[in-house]
Write a protein that binds this DNA or RNA. Sequence first.
DNA 1: GCCTAGGCTTCCACTGAGCGGAAGGACAGG
DNA 2: CCTGTCCTTCCGCTCAGTGGAAGCCTAGGC
Lengths: 250, 250
Amino acid sequence: MAGNTSAPGATVVSRALALLYAFDDRHRRLTLTELARRAGLPVPTAYRLAGELVAGGALVRRADGAYVVGRRLWDVGLLAPVQTGLRRIAAPFLNDIHAVTRATVHLAIRDGAKVLYLERLSGRASVPVVSRVGARLPMHATGVGKALLAHAPYEVQEAVMADLAPLTPYTITRPDRLRAQLEQVRRDGCATTVEEMTLGACSIAVPVRGRDGEAVAAIGVVVPTLKRDRARLLSALQVAAQGVTRSLGG
Amino acid sequence: MAGNTSAPGATVVSRALALLYAFDDRHRRLTLTELARRAGLPVPTAYRLAGELVAGGALVRRADGAYVVGRRLWDVGLLAPVQTGLRRIAAPFLNDIHAVTRATVHLAIRDGAKVLYLERLSGRASVPVVSRVGARLPMHATGVGKALLAHAPYEVQEAVMADLAPLTPYTITRPDRLRAQLEQVRRDGCATTVEEMTLGACSIAVPVRGRDGEAVAAIGVVVPTLKRDRARLLSALQVAAQGVTRSLGG
DNA sequence: GCCTAGGCTTCCACTGAGCGGAAGGACAGG
DNA sequence: CCTGTCCTTCCGCTCAGTGGAAGCCTAGGC
């Protein structure tokens, strides 16, 4: 487009998308300079393109100058067929768990070597929960992550083992320990975490099986402690997972 | 960008956004020709730009050639600050209503002359519900819509009156009748619909007031019939709306 | 089997839309 | 007043973008 481009070959569309993708869970609002740096564009270019995105409603510029994602993009994003079938089928079962346990309930799938949270019902208890719909978290430190990892292909397990980043002092960082836990998950049919992702938060999760028996998703709850209610939570999760599996099959 | 452009002045970004905005609730998947027509672009241009959007993960091209919104855009869209505060605060109260009534529960705000659905908890009853998170529906035919319209500015009410499209034989299409109903909504503090949006679906809704007393949102439920449970549903809604108002204030 | 219609993809000559360094503001902190 | 940081505008250069035309493929009618 321009004679003096610093990165010839990059199209306008790719630059515009780079601006949109500069936003993530940790960066929901960006100043122009941050936006330009994260998108890898010169400031004037970012300024102009971001201005067009604002004009189109894809971004919004707030009074203080910071850019945030616009409602128009929210609209369009919701049209993405991200497991719509699974989410629709699972929704009532998740509600049941929530009604019974009052805990934070999650529905997640595996996305590469991460857990992708599809749904979340917030509990009322004051448990610190970092997950969010659309967030991708490490598999080795979350309940739903371990439930999915235990039934994931060998290559995925190895990829995860290669980077067991510690998030709290209780995060499992030794591959042999994680391997042993995954074995236990397969035996017990459920996975647990104890302050491995966030201090003060424990979780328990079960896999959801498709009609061919493969683990297609996981359902889990986050609670302050597992000591008291473990059995009760587990049975609620198992009933729900069974129900989802049945609905998927039929 | 090009010498032979048919619409000089239109930027690449605006064209790319036109492609994204070509998708809506009724058009979640589009063929190339449809996409081009809805975006107002020549087919070759749409083909090239859509190809770039696919390369960037904003769109996905399925095996049958149809385009759908991509997961990457879903990710970014979820970062939009669309009433995040209201939604977070209201979530537990919506769950309460759902737990008690087992009906489909909605949280909506007014967006111009339409109702914008922010949250939805699906009920298990077999009630046909057309709403969807992110959907915009007409105000005159929905419970939450009438609850919001009754407290909307005069200009908005007039704009809605100007286009009372019939959706079922029971949709209110006469401005005087709607005006009388809105008056009643203000008196009773709740709005109802009886098969005005969808045959076989009734609804009841109440406004949620902000700390300054203005109606900032509405909460409603959809049920097969209002005959039996009207009083019970209404009290559940009122308790929840009060709770949200209190949480907003504090 | 031939022909037509409709949608998808590729080609290519033309040119103005896009580029970004540089300069100019605006503002805060020292 | 000076300095640093961020935001905005300017402007000359040029190649990325454009879309009509043509070719391709498949489906359907006869």
